[in-house]
Design a protein around this nucleic acid. Structure first.
Lengths: 187, 187
DNA sequence: GTCTATATCTTGATAGAC
DNA sequence: GTCTATCAAGATATAGAC
């Protein structure tokens, strides 16, 4: 293993540890020391690789909205597409889940996380679907769609409300999709 | 003004300042010093009255769910009742709004706030309406109803998504109520 | 009773030894 | 290049003067 490989491996270990702690305990309660401890490296190394706690958080907390999938969905497909996007983001890939959780966990208390959540996640997703919803209320309906999805996501993965955590994907589809259809298509 | 009155007034001023800062900046970013400064008192006085920052937070962050109103609503009335509860809690009374915001702002990052939010708000509200929803999915439907309401509340009052903050009460009723009716009554 | 002063702790960040 | 040792800042909480 070359030195460059070792360096990349160490950096990846630090990043994963940081994502887990930011996702679980939030920004303020995770310390450089605790991240270094979990990653098995020296705290000074974390600073050397990432510069500051803020930059480490920026590299850790990410949310990827699938614009292509959302943008190409028809109005009838929108609810199912939005729900599928949630499942893909939070249950399929570990890396993506931890990064998204790290952002969502801190979006109410960390200034930059709040900005990313509002501008790069919510408003972007809203813009991607408002056109296919159409009508006078398009923006509002797109916003409500996103708000409901965020609420379900928070209740299920962060607050861990038993009724939500205990629901299967089919349960959620059965209960949620008809409601979301009413949001995107009042007719 | 008697000494007891003065004491109560001072305590109320401290509590209001604490609620505003907990609601706006979150638990970690508000300090005893800043609360005392805004209230115009000495930091030591805050400690003397409330014991600790944790207890001050406990007294500041409160959420009152109107069980009576929710519990006595028919299934048809449930969506409108839930929405009315949100507006009453967040737009009518200043004290109640700041207390609720203080809890909501911190419910993802502060352990005790998370517990109160899950157990005393979400699960309580869920239990209050599950009976009137009925059917096999009653608990899940009640949970989804609460999750959507929380999502809209967060998007509107905390994340301040333009499409949500710009909506009037009538806008939200028009867009949201038909969807919530689908949640509580799939028939 | 109120507040000044401070103890004690923890944090992010840095400098220099090896 | 990695880590030991430490700095400087800021927090809660307390003890004692007035």
């Amino acid at each position: 293993m070359t030195r460059e490989e070792r360096r990349r491996r160490t950096e990846a270990a630090i990043l994963l540890a940081a994502q887990e702690q930011f996702a679980e305990q939030g920004f303020e309660r995770t310390t450089i020391r605790s991240v270094a401890g979990q990653a098995g490296v020296d705290p000074a190394l974390v600073m050397q690789y990432f510069g500051s706690k803020e930059q480490l958080f920026g590299a850790s907390a990410r949310w990827t909205v699938d614009h292509k999938m959302l943008g190409s969905a028809t109005r009838e497909e929108l609810p199912a597409t939005a729900l599928a996007d949630m499942f893909e983001g939070f249950e399929d890939d570990v890396q993506r889940r931890e990064a998204a959780l790290a952002l969502l966990r801190n979006c109410l208390t960390h200034p930059s996380a709040a900005g990313v959540m509002r501008d790069d996640v919510m408003c972007e997703a809203q813009a991607a679907v408002a056109g296919t919803i159409g009508g006078d209320d398009a923006e509002l309906r797109a916003g409500v769609l996103g708000a409901c999805m965020i609420g379900v996501t928070i209740a299920r993965y962060l607050l861990e409300i038993p009724a939500l955590t205990g629901a299967t994907r089919e349960d959620l589809e059965r209960v949620l999709l008809p409601a979301l259809r009413q949001v995107v298509d009042p007719g």
